[in-house]
Each structure stands twice: as structure tokens, then as C-alpha cells.
Nucleic acid binder design. Structure first.
Lengths: 231, 231
DNA sequence: GCCAGTTATACCAATAGTGAACCAATACAA
DNA sequence: TTGTATTGGTTCACTATTGGTATAACTGGC
């Protein structure tokens, strides 16, 4: 018996620094960290990733070399996700109402696809994102975790076109033009209400109830749209 | 003991090192180990394959000689195999079924938005596109006019995010991977049927009947999806 | 016996990562 | 304006891991 034929391939181990750089890079690409936003401090990142600050610095060095972030001593590390000046960022020419209209178009069927295609592993990821979302008290971290939560649902469709669409939606959602609105809209009560919807949605996903999941998302977005046009 | 093994194979038995090299080579070609990624350490591979490190080194030497991996002392063994698609076009990794799932998600609500936001000028443009579409007999020009027709509806929403989404959908639809399918699917009868749906859709848009327009699009796409999965 | 392939072991040099300390630039509040 | 806290920038010695190399012994087929 030849061991080379039967042995399962061992998983690759990426270097810690490059692995962290990759994770941060995709987070920026997904709009989880938005253009101009400050990343957590090196020491905080080292704590979050359970590694030394030196490793975090090596990872950030990679991002800095590819001009994804810029750093200033005493100030922090900032995302510099610059778009072409001629090709204006889609996020800058999309209004909140236009965004929510697109979300109403996309998300109900998206969660339907997610209920059909999500693996247990996907559901685990979504659950983790939901837990993090529910335990984040400030509007700042809430919106970030909210984007992670929804993106993980989009990824659960395993439809590359859908994933790329939702990445773009998240990019628009994360644009700084709404950072002012955020603190006004996201009261504690509003976040509680959102979390209720999120939990319901997750449970519908978990039991593969596509109709309920789609209904929850649709009513969630339609009330958000009403709030937008009535204020 | 397997009786099939008692008679020696005509080909000389490959040594363990060659077998492992082959296994790793196909793993890299299959994308199990991705470009730029680090392979497990030699000692880990030796452990996984239950062979000595010398054998693993012999196998890696083969891969290194064929420029599939590069190695750095103290760092590791890294895959250097550009799949020739470092930035894979979204059109190339999207299947027909995945595309139609996204269209089912987007288009019904898109035509709703179009019925609400379309100006008379938009309707004129859509009408012109429809006329050109109906008078195009070959599959080649039909698909081009079909994209123009649908894009003009997307533009009629006056929602920049929606327009950009549909541009991407059209980009995927226009990819060369479908061109083979086109001539087979687009019989004269099929084009007539499509044109009937298009004309109905246009009339629903013209009288601002959002429900009918959405229904027409949805049933149109769902029958297309059925044809896709049943053939 | 010969020989190629494999095993087992030991050691080396290169590299990544750790943990700590300290400096300099910045932000913010008293 | 002045402290004070926080941030990135730098350096250090140390440890763990990695590929590189060499050597001796074992194995099975010729």
C-alpha cells in the first residue's frame, strides 16, 4: 500500500503575518473597514489575533506596501481605499433611499438562496457573526458587525455573482457619508429591534424555512425604508 | 492480500517520492494548495505521509525543479503557480444557473422600480430597443439587442447602484462562455416566445402596472431556470 | 555483492515570531 | 498652554520553526 495514494493532504499553514494581512485585506475589500476609517491600534490587533505586536506590524507593513493603508505615528492606521478620480465611487452617488431599494430587490431572494445552499459550516459562521453583533453596544461596532453578519449570509449562497453584489452593497453601506447618520439612527432601542430581526432570520435559516426568512428580511427592509421617507 | 497485486504491473512501480510529488502536483493544479500559499513543513509532510523527511525532500525537489514551488530556508515551501487568472473574471466563475438565480433576485423588483421612476423619455428608449430586438433574426444580434433592451430598463430606474448591478449582469451574460450555448438555445421559436414576453413587459411598463411587470419578468426567468435544470 | 531508494539521526543557517523596553508624534482634555 | 494617554516607530535578545546538509544504516530486487 502506497501512503502517497491514501493519505489525506495536510492543510497548509500560512505564515501568521501573511495570514493576518490577507484577512485584513479581504475585510477592507468587503467594506468592513471603510475608506478613511482607522483600524484598531496595533496593540489591540495583537490582542485580538492572539499574536505579538511584531507580527501585527509585519502584516500591516504588507498592507502599507500595497497602499491599502497609511499610518501616522501617534494617530493610527487608516484605510486608504482610493478609487479613480474619473470613475467616481459608486458609494458617493448612491442615496440612502436608492441603496435600500436595491437591498429590497436583492436580499429577500438572497436569503432564499442562502437557506438552500448554506452548509452547517456556513450556519456556524453566521451564528458567530450574530453573537458578535448582539454583544456590540456602540453604533460604531454595531454597523461593522452588521456588515459582517449580512456578508456571511451572502457568502452562504455560494453564488460568486451574488457574493460580489453584496460586497458592493456593503461597500456602499460603509461609506463615510452615513457615519453622521449612524449615531442619530442607531439608538439602543433601534439596535435591540434590529437584533430581534436578525435572530429571527438566523433561526429561519437554521431550519431552512426560506419563506419565513425572505419575509423577515423584506419586512425589515420595508420598515427601514418607511423610516427613511417619513423622517 | 489482494490477488490483483500478486501479478506485478507492467509499468515499473513508482518510488514513494515520485508518487508523493505527483500527488502534490495534482493538488496544486486542482487549487487545493493555492498560489502563494505555504505548504506544510517538510517534517509535517513526512509525518502526514508516514515517510521520512528525506523522501519528502526528494518529492519537493521534483516540484521545485519544475518551478511549481519555491523554497526559502527558515520560511517554508511556497506554491508558485499562477492559475493564469490572478484576478479571475467574475464572468468566468459564474455558472448559468448562478446567473439566473441572481437575475431572479434582482429583476422583478428592478422592473417595479422602473415602472415607478421611468420618464417618458426612458420609455421611448426602451421602445426603440424593443423594436430593434424584435427585428433581429439571428441569435448573434438578438442577444446583443436583448442586453441593450434590459439595460435600458435598468437605466430607467435611475438608481446608480441598480444600473451598475445590471451592467455587471450583462457583462456576465455577454461572456464568451455562453456563445456556444446561444446558437443551440435560441431557435426561431424561442426568440418569438421571448419577444412576446418582452412586448408584454414593455406594455406593463408603459401603463405603470408594476405588479404585472414583475410577474412577467419572474415567470419569464423561472421558466428559463426550469429549462436549464431539466435539460 | 551491488545498487537505488528509503529510513533515521544529527546539526547548521535562515527566518518568523515573541516579549519587552523605550522613543517620538499625535490627540485630547484640563 | 500644559499634561497625559495613546499611537506608531525602533531596537533588543530570545525562542521556535523551517529548509539545507551530511552521514550511517536498512531494504528489496537484480
Amino acid at each position: 500500500m502506497n501512503p502517497a495514494r491514501t493519505t489525506p493532504l495536510p492543510l497548509p499553514r500560512a505564515g501568521t503575518a501573511v495570514a493576518i494581512a490577507t484577512r485584513l485585506r479581504t475585510a477592507i475589500a468587503d467594506g468592513i473597514y471603510v475608506d478613511g476609517e482607522r483600524l484598531p491600534a496595533e496593540r489591540a490587533l495583537a490582542d485580538a489575533f492572539s499574536c505579538s505586536r511584531t507580527t501585527i506590524r509585519a502584516a500591516l507593513r504588507l498592507l502599507c506596501d500595497s497602499n491599502l493603508v497609511s499610518r501616522r505615528a501617534g494617530s493610527g492606521t487608516f484605510v486608504t481605499f482610493s478609487h479613480d478620480a474619473e470613475n467616481p465611487d459608486i458609494a458617493e452617488i448612491t442615496s440612502p433611499l436608492e441603496l435600500i431599494d436595491v437591498r429590497i430587490a436583492v436580499e429577500p431572494h438572497m436569503v432564499r438562496l442562502a437557506t438552500v445552499h448554506a452548509t452547517m459550516r456556513d450556519l456556524g459562521r453566521i451564528g458567530i457573526a450574530l453573537d458578535a453583533l448582539e454583544s456590540s453596544g456602540e453604533p460604531e461596532s454595531f454597523t461593522r458587525q452588521d456588515r459582517i453578519f449580512h456578508q456571511s449570509i451572502a457568502d452562504a449562497t455560494h453564488n460568486p455573482l451574488m457574493c460580489s453584489f453584496y460586497r458592493r452593497i456593503n461597500h456602499v453601506r460603509g461609506h463615510r457619508q452615513w457615519s453622521a447618520m449612524k449615531d442619530k439612527v442607531l439608538t439602543g432601542q433601534a439596535m435591540d429591534s434590529y437584533n430581534h430581526d436578525h435572530r429571527q432570520l438566523f433561526e429561519a435559516l437554521a431550519v431552512r424555512d426560506a419563506d419565513s426568512a425572505a419575509d423577515i428580511v423584506l419586512s425589515h427592509l420595508q420598515t427601514a425604508r418607511l423610516h427613511l421617507v417619513s423622517t
